[in-house]
Design a protein around this nucleic acid. Structure first.
Length: 551
RNA sequence: GCGGGCGUAGUUCAAUGGUAGAACGGCAGCCUUCCAAGCUGCACACGAGGGUUCGAUUCCCUUCGCCCGCUCCA
């Protein structure tokens, strides 16, 4: 019962987005292209506002985060180190009888067999592998399914110059970590933020712009000291409450406190742009969901109209952002694959270490050694080499050297835009004196993200004095915000148009503005989008009044 | 990628083997002293390609796209 209703809502939202110029299908005049979407005039403003708010709150308003803008195409070696070349290309095969599709490696494993590799490097199913659905052995050859978009650098298309469009922005940050550290005069703990396009050749793009093949990410990699270093310097690692914001960062925070901190910082961000806590959901990844290198991941979810309900009728929502504690995995991988040291030297740690008791030194040494050894072994380093390398790493720690750990809040911009749009969508049914009712749409965006901040409207179009004054007000506000001037049709129609665009305020220039009532000369009507209420304000106060509400 | 459904103005819909109408919206003009008022006029569509046919938007095939389910989602 609820299902068609939710689809209808989504359809209405899709129509509105097209009709008002928030979102269009990419390449529409050629029939479209699956998984790609364009933003129209209003959508482009909305998205720009969101990205600017993120960038501003993440970098400019903080002492400890700096920005980066890296290329989309990078050395393919980066994707080998990150694991994407391996994990993003699963061999798949189909059952020719019942048309089911399987991951070839899982299918073999389920039957106690092993996926084989031919000498040419192709995959082959083990003899006798059956379809787990219908039992048929008539299966297609396993075909690699690469989720990364591939291209060639240079005019010659050969395997030697294959490159990939980045499937995430994060890796560039790790790859440039040393450069940023050198040039920014930052010290751990600090972060590097980046906004940019990423590409994934999804099997099935679905749910409007939610899962698309080209999308934008806002990612922060926040580098912290390993807990063993914190303990060496401060005696112990701080514990913070499991819920709520832990407050201002403290020097004795370990990864758990930082992780907690970033989850709450991110929730604050969403609240600040109009997504209340009630519209959000949280998913704490369980041990078996976590990637092997991750210590913890909390997903921030948003309840979309297409989100499913569970058996209990509860809606969890879909992921807007994941905040992952990724240990020192990423930098370690790049150190191993590039051969370039990714560790840093911590003067404070070296000094503190020397003052520790032998017992404490041994304990911390041992713990660091174990965690490095675990990483190396899981990454395929032979046991003997792993323990040798881990010993070296632990000896390094004693001299003040370590590879920073990382907390990664990684958000999808386009998902957030869709969340803001569905969250803003409101229908208002009005009945006039004649009993005729109609449903109007009001897009209740937070003024901070609204594409148009203010509509400037002369009450009547055919009175040149009103038009002239309105144009003056428009020009007064225009350097400060996105203003929309409209003199077409009745004033009510123009209000309705701005409601659909989500414009929080409209300024109307009327005869009192011109001095019909002398005491009201040079004042205007301000009309509020969400309740239609009006107030009167002097033009001289207008700019500051608006700025206070849109910032 | 598989199965099912669907593609007609910007949007929502209608009709038809003889090349299409409406409502709303848009634009222009008139009018209009605060919430999609009114009048006049204008523009705009059969997703694409092929086939059958004297003739295809309509029937058939292919393709692209959208929706639902499966699959996938580092």
């Amino acid at each position: 019962m609820a299902e068609p209703k939710e689809n209808q809502l989504m359809e209405k939202i899709v129509s509105l987005c097209k009709r008002r110029g928030f979102v269009y299908q990419s390449s529409e005049i050629y029939g479209g292209i699956n998984g790609f979407w364009d933003y129209g005039p209003l959508g482009a403003e909305l998205k720009r506002n969101v990205k600017e708010l993120w960038w501003n709150s993440m970098t400019r308003q903080r002492e400890d985060v700096v920005g980066l803008e890296a290329t989309i195409i990078m050395s393919p070696a980066i994707w080998k180190a990150s694991g994407h070349v391996d994990t993003f290309s699963d061999p798949m095969c189909d059952c020719k009888k019942c048309k089911k599709r399987f991951r070839a490696d899982q299918l073999c494993e389920d039957q106690g067999l092993k996926l084989e590799k031919t000498p040419e490097g192709k995959f082959a199913l083990a003899a006798g592998t059956k379809c787990t659905s219908c039992g048929s052995t008539d299966l297609t050859e396993p075909r690699p399914f690469n989720l990364m978009f591939k291209t060639y650098v240079g005019p010659v298309e050969s395997e030697d110059n294959v490159a990939y469009l980045r499937p995430e922005t994060a890796q560039a940050i790790f790859a440039q970590f040393k450069n940023v550290l050198e040039t920014s005069r930052q010290k751990v703990p600090f972060g590097i933020a980046q906004i940019g396009k990423a590409f994934r050749n999804e099997v099935t793009p679905r749910n409007y712009t939610f899962r698309s093949r080209e999308f934008e990410q806002m990612e922060l990699e926040f580098f912290i000291k390993p807990d063993e270093a914190i303990e060496a310097i401060h005696g112990s690692v701080a514990t913070v409450p499991e819920t709520g914001h832990p407050g201002e960062p403290q020097p004795n925070w370990g990864w758990q406190a930082w992780h907690r901190y970033w989850v709450e910082e991110r929730v604050r961000f969403y609240e600040n742009i109009g997504l209340s806590r009630e519209t959000l959901g949280f998913h704490v990844q369980t041990a078996d969901e976590l990637a092997h290198y991750a210590r913890a991941t909390v997903d921030i979810l948003f309840k979309f109209p297409f989100s499913k309900r569970d058996e209990k009728g509860e809606m969890k929502g879909e992921e807007l952002e994941g905040i992952a504690a990724r240990s020192d995995f990423d930098l370690s991988q790049h150190e191993r694959f590039s051969g370039k040291p990714m560790g840093i030297f911590d003067e404070e740690l070296r000094g503190a270490w020397a003052k520790l008791s032998k017992e404490k030194q041994d304990e911390l040494w041992k713990r660091y050694y174990e965690s490095r050894k675990r990483y190396l072994e899981k990454s395929g380093v032979p046991a003997e080499q792993a323990s040798k390398d881990a010993t070296e790493d632990a000896n390094g720690l004693a001299k003040g050297q370590y590879i920073p750990h990382v907390i990664e809040p990684s958000a999808g911009v386009d998902r957030l835009i869709l969340g803001l749009i569905t969250n803003a969508y409101t229908e208002v049914t009005k009945t006039d004196d004649k009993g005729k009712s109609e449903t109007l749409v009001v897009m209740k965006f937070h003024p901070r993200v609204a594409p148009i901040k203010v509509g400037v409207l002369p009450l009547l179009k055919n009175k040149p004095e009103l038009v002239k004054k309105a144009e003056e007000v428009r020009d007064l506000l225009r350097p400060w915000m996105n203003v929309f001037y409209d003199d077409g049709g009745s004033i009510g129609r123009r209000y309705a148009r701005q409601d659909e665009a989500g414009t929080p305020f409209c300024v109307t220039i009327d005869f009192d503005t011109l001095g019909e009532k002398p005491e009201l000369k040079d004042t205007v009507t301000i009309r509020h989008r969400d309740d239609g209420k009006q107030e009167r304000l002097a033009i001289g106060e207008l700019l500051n009044w608006l700025l206070a509400r849109i910032r």
